[in-house]
Amino acid sequence: MKNPHPDDNALALDRTVLANERTFQAWIRTGLSALAAGLGIAKFLQDTMPQLMLLALATAMILLSILAFLQASWRYTHLHIRMVNLEVDATPTWMVKAISFSLVGCSLLALISVFLLASH
């Protein structure tokens, strides 16, 4: 039977894990927002800006999304490594890395498509 009154240390560890997961999610949201902004700039501002400026802004936002996705993975893993010997339930690092690197791949594909569309 589980202890109905966990000690303060277990609760603190649980709060740390949850905070780490919230931080990961925040970095992912930031990356997705930057990716959407980059694609939006490339799509909806075509007739209002010079092509070179448009391409530079879209590229900068998409690269920012890649950095955010990589930061999400690094930050989560960095704290998780320090807690690996503790008895806490957390999202496995392989899953965090898989999510982050999948999103990096999506951002790279988006960047390629922006360049291909700009060349036409």
Rank of each mutant, 00 (worst) to 15 (best):
W74D: 11
W27Y: 15
K2W: 12
L116W: 14
I99L: 11
F101C: 03
V84C: 08
T77W: 00
Q71H: 14
A19E: 09
L63N: 14
F115W: 15
F69K: 06
T16W: 08
S107H: 02
L79E: 05
H5T: 13
A60Y: 02
A72M: 07
G40T: 03
L54K: 03
R15I: 09
M61P: 04
H80E: 07
G105R: 07
R29T: 11
Q71W: 06
A98S: 12
L11Q: 15
L67P: 00
W27K: 09
P50K: 03
H78S: 10
H120W: 13
A60R: 05
L32S: 06
A118N: 12
R29D: 13
D47Y: 09
I81K: 10
S113D: 15
L45M: 14
W27F: 14
A56Y: 10
L79V: 09
L116R: 15
A37D: 12
F44I: 10
S102V: 10
L18E: 11
L70Y: 01
V96R: 01
S33K: 06
A34N: 13
M1W: 08
T91P: 03
T23R: 09
R22Q: 11
S113A: 14
T16R: 11
Q25D: 10
S100D: 03
I62H: 06
F69H: 10
V96T: 02
I81G: 00
T16M: 11
I81P: 00
M1D: 12
A58Q: 03
L52G: 06
M95W: 13
L111D: 03
S113C: 11
I112C: 12
A12Y: 08
F44L: 14
T93P: 00
L111Y: 05
A60K: 08
L108I: 11
L64Q: 14
N85A: 13
N9I: 12
L35N: 00
L103S: 01
A56R: 11
T59C: 03
L35I: 00
H80K: 01
V104K: 05
M49G: 01
A118H: 09
M49D: 05
Q46T: 15
K43P: 00
A19L: 11
D47W: 05
A90S: 10
L111T: 00
H80F: 03
L18S: 12
L52R: 14
L18V: 12
A68W: 04
V17D: 01
Q51N: 10
L54P: 02
G105E: 08
L103P: 01
A72R: 00
L57Q: 07
A58H: 00
A12R: 13
D7T: 05
N3V: 06
S73L: 02
G40R: 02
P6D: 05
V84E: 14
M95N: 10
L13I: 08
L32C: 04
E87G: 09
R22D: 08
H80W: 00
H78E: 13
Q71P: 02
A118M: 09
A60H: 11
A36K: 01
Q46A: 15
H120V: 15
L70S: 07
T16Y: 07
S65Q: 02
R22I: 07
L54W: 02
D8R: 07
A60F: 06
A37F: 07
G105C: 06
A19Y: 05
A60I: 04
L117Q: 13
N9H: 14
H80N: 05
A56I: 11
I41Q: 04
T77F: 00
G31P: 10
T59F: 03
L116V: 15
A12H: 08
T93S: 08
N9S: 07
K2C: 12
P6L: 07
R15A: 15
S100C: 02
